[in-house]
Design a protein around this nucleic acid. Structure first.
Lengths: 176, 176
DNA sequence: TCACATCGTTAGCCTATCTAGTTAAATGCA
DNA sequence: TGCATTTAACTAGATAGGCTAACGATGTGA
């Protein structure tokens, strides 16, 4: 979400718009607040685990995909995080040094590696996140059933809008 | 939002939960997707304006608050961005060098400064953002009126949850 | 008036990124 | 087969944006 542009927060809205426009504005404002709370949470979480947000995101990605068909390689991680392979290499150095990740040989391609999370990383992430996920699910369940679809549609529409919006210049290609 | 933890995406949910649990999971998943789309959009936007995301956020903050009662000072900016005053000073150096911001004397406190956006910054930001805001408002208006309050409540509850969550366990005593 | 607080800035450091170049392995082609 | 190209990961060195500490100028309260 964006920070408030002037007319987002100010009087203008209330002065002449319909009631339902008002509630639409409030919906946007709530979206913005959620966005920033999420951002903040990530930061707190990563500092509490004594790493930066990229490293935490990497850790989560590895854990989330470890029992997937396609194993996580440094390259795949790089693509997900949108950083270069070189940066990923250093990231892996950090996270192996801290005992969160390990590099294992790739079963089919001896040029490559697969990246796995240690037991310690698992428990650390699970401690902090699994409870949170359940509580988020509770919150989602608290939305009255008929409104859930509408809320979902709203968020997906917003996502799609943001995904297709504002690519004025070329996408900068990344290395391999 | 979090990347998917294994059980978020997998079969488990569909197998034995109620229908409305299913739709709650979908709501969470939509939330996650929105979150990441927003993140991506910010990045695209800042690189397309040839600055980092912090600088862009600063620029938006200044523009958003320029006709507010309390003028934007370097300190206020620092608090909003959650960086130190020193870093803010450098940030202002960058953004004045690039012609986006200017430092003006503070009317009442001669120790302080007020930060104002140049005409160039205004047009650049407005070009990229004003249309987007209106479209987001359209999307919010497309949510059926009765569901809007529920969606708003959901997002606010999520925000509140994230705001109060996850500073819990102190540094896990891993060696050192 | 004087001690102290506050605001912005400068100086110097640290770290996470980048680019460029290297090595090893896989792949494609004559 | 054997050679050229592509691909994966890594290393070395540079850069940028953050930090802490210290400082001058200004405001403020006893």
């Amino acid at each position: 979400m964006t920070e408030a542009l002037p007319h987002e927060e100010a009087s203008e809205a209330r002065s002449y718009w319909f009631d339902d426009a008002d509630s639409a504005v409030e919906l946007l404002s709530a979206t913005r607040r959620f966005r920033s709370a999420d951002h903040e949470m990530r930061r707190r979480m990563s500092t509490s685990m004594d790493m930066n947000t990229t490293d935490l995101s990497a850790l989560r990605f590895v854990i989330a995909h470890e029992q997937s068909d396609a194993p996580v390689t440094p390259l795949r991680l790089a693509q997900h995080l949108q950083i270069t392979g070189a940066s990923t290499s250093k990231l892996l150095d950090r996270l192996t040094a801290s005992g969160h990740l390990e590099r294992a040989p790739h079963p089919h391609d001896r040029r490559s590696r697969i990246v796995v999370a240690t037991a310690h990383a698992h428990s650390q992430v699970r401690d902090r996140l699994s409870g949170m996920h359940e509580q988020m699910l509770e919150i989602a369940r608290a939305v009255p059933a008929p409104a859930r679809q509408a809320a979902t549609d709203f968020l997906l529409a917003m996502a799609e809008h943001l995904e297709t919006e504002a690519p004025p210049r070329e996408l900068t290609p990344r290395e391999g």
